[in-house]
């Protein structure tokens, strides 16, 4: 996998890379070069399969990571192409012209993360959710507990006591340096 990584670096400029397993490598690249790289890999290097497209929310850095996983059926090697986009008004180039099944992935990421892929056919069409009004639910700042408490009332009469806190209270655990 070293050769292909080297070639990518030569052709597409600075990247970060890592060989995770003998048949799996990771490449990080700036968003503008991601789709040209994917196209080149598909057209010229035998990475014809789009195994999946996924997003990761790095809320602390204010970024979304998009991960295209390509497969080469000849060598059974997998390349993970990662690219970070701004979390504000996130958008990325579509690959639905290269792979028909990308439409579904882009539709789902659009729904679950709020990342838009202009030109992809099913953007804005609900895929899994119906009548969803909240923020896109796979974002890290979507509070699942608050959502559940609001929509699904818990069972009545349940009360859990945390052992650690309970013992502190019962045995008069106190601090003397802080009020």
């Amino acid at each position: 996998m070293k050769e292909i990584l080297k070639e990518i670096e030569e052709r597409f400029g600075p990247i970060w890379e890592r060989v995770q397993r003998p048949k799996l490598a990771q490449v990080g690249i700036e968003p503008a070069k991601a789709v040209p790289l994917l196209t080149w890999l598909k057209e010229h290097r035998g990475y014809v399969t789009l195994v999946h497209l996924s997003a990761v929310d790095w809320i602390e850095q204010g970024e979304f990571q998009l991960t295209w996983l390509l497969g080469n059926p000849e060598t059974e090697e997998r390349l993970m192409i990662c690219s970070r986009i701004d979390r504000e008004n996130p958008a990325a180039e579509t690959v639905s012209g290269l792979w028909p099944q990308a439409v579904t992935y882009e539709q789902e990421i659009n729904e679950m993360f709020g990342v838009s892929f202009p030109g992809s056919p099913r953007q804005g069409v609900p895929f899994i959710l119906e009548g969803w009004k909240d923020i896109p639910p796979m974002r890290r700042d979507f509070d699942t507990v608050a959502f559940v408490e609001k929509h699904i009332p818990g069972r009545e009469g349940r009360k859990h006591i945390d052992t650690r806190t309970y013992i502190g209270e019962k045995f008069g655990e106190k601090g003397y340096l802080h009020d």
């Binding site: 195994v51 999946h52 996924s54 991960t67 996983l69 997998r78 993970m80």
Partner: peptide
């Protein structure tokens, strides 16, 4: 870290992308 692992399920290639 991040990785992708795969296995042959009865339906085909099942994979997990884990970060």
């Amino acid at each position: 870290g991040q990785t992708y692992v795969r296995a042959e399920s009865s339906r085909g290639e099942m994979g997990y992308y884990v970060v």
